[in-house]
């Protein structure tokens, strides 16, 4: 079959490397182990988030009476409730839900491209790769909007007590939006983790879009047809699904919990 590719067709004996021990080619195995190491990196980020969050004061009052304060960790669904073109409406998690849907759909189109590759169907691979690229770009655009909204902030500012080193007095300042210095939504690490975790994931999506485009280009120019198999689509597909998988965890641990 076309998908148990290169390793199987070398014609060498088993003892000369003619057979692949895990019945997967070198490239595919290395992709798997790279993704495993990447999973550890993302786990490091998400678990540190868990550590810092659980060591902070949690919000104790009624959910309906929640207001932003730098004294306690915010309820995420109160932070992420804005949707483009619907200013002023409280729509918790709706936009993140749309983003999740986009990424899952692009994972489906990717797996359809892999299936088409097994059948040597160049036209279908081109079609599904193009849809996957569009999905990736759409997701990145959504993220750009979400970051902008997070950085700019809400209409009402949050009051924060700061110590003025010149006068030696505590004073109250107004904070809108968030960056790596101030954060209107809660304690500073909340904003820092938002930028680092979604940023690192967004960077993976960006790299994935570039790789997908490379695959698309090679498909269109017939590189894989001449090579006789579409294994590169499978390898990059593994990466793309992993990006989707990470988002599933980010969605749960950053936005839902």
């Amino acid at each position: 079959m076309a998908h148990s590719t290169a390793a199987a067709v070398t014609g060498k004996s088993v003892w000369d490397g003619g057979a692949s021990p895990m019945n997967a080619s070198y490239g595919k195995l290395m992709m798997w182990f790279f993704l495993l190491s990447d999973a550890f990196t993302f786990s490091g980020l998400l678990i540190t988030y868990g550590l810092v969050r659980s060591s902070h004061q949690a919000y104790e009052g009624l959910v309906s009476a929640f207001t932003f304060s730098t004294e306690y960790w915010p309820i995420p669904e109160k932070v992420f409730e804005a949707v483009p073109f619907l200013h002023g409406y409280e729509l918790p998690l709706v936009f993140v839900g749309i983003m999740t849907f986009i990424l899952i759909m692009s994972s489906v189109t990717m797996v359809l491209a892999v299936e088409a590759g097994h059948r040597m169907d160049r036209k279908a691979v081109e079609k599904w790769m193009l849809w996957t690229i569009i999905g990736g770009i759409t997701f990145l655009s959504c993220q750009a909007w979400e970051w902008t909204h997070f950085i700019v902030g809400t209409d009402t500012a949050t009051l924060k007590d700061v110590f003025n080193t010149k006068t030696g007095l505590w004073e109250q300042i107004k904070v809108t939006g968030a960056n790596l210095h101030v954060n209107q939504y809660g304690p500073q690490p909340f904003a820092d983790f938002f930028f680092f975790i979604t940023g690192f994931h967004g960077f993976h999506v960006f790299s994935g879009v570039l790789l997908n485009f490379l695959i698309y280009y090679n498909t269109v120019t017939g590189v894989y047809e001449r090579r006789g198999h579409y294994e590169m689509v499978e390898k990059v597909g593994l990466y793309w699904h992993f990006v989707d998988l990470v988002w599933v965890f980010v969605f749960t641990f950053f936005y839902l919990v």
């Binding site: 495993l36 678990i47 550590l51 810092v52 659980s54 060591s55």
Partner: peptide
């Protein structure tokens, strides 16, 4: 199993770190 077994370390890391976070409320 080569992919799945190492993931156990992540589970361990998660449990250990969150436990540590609850026990050491340094930021409160």
């Amino acid at each position: 199993w080569s992919i799945l077994i190492p993931v156990l370390f992540i589970v361990w890391m998660l449990v250990a770190f969150v436990y540590e976070g609850i026990k050491m409320p340094v930021f409160q």
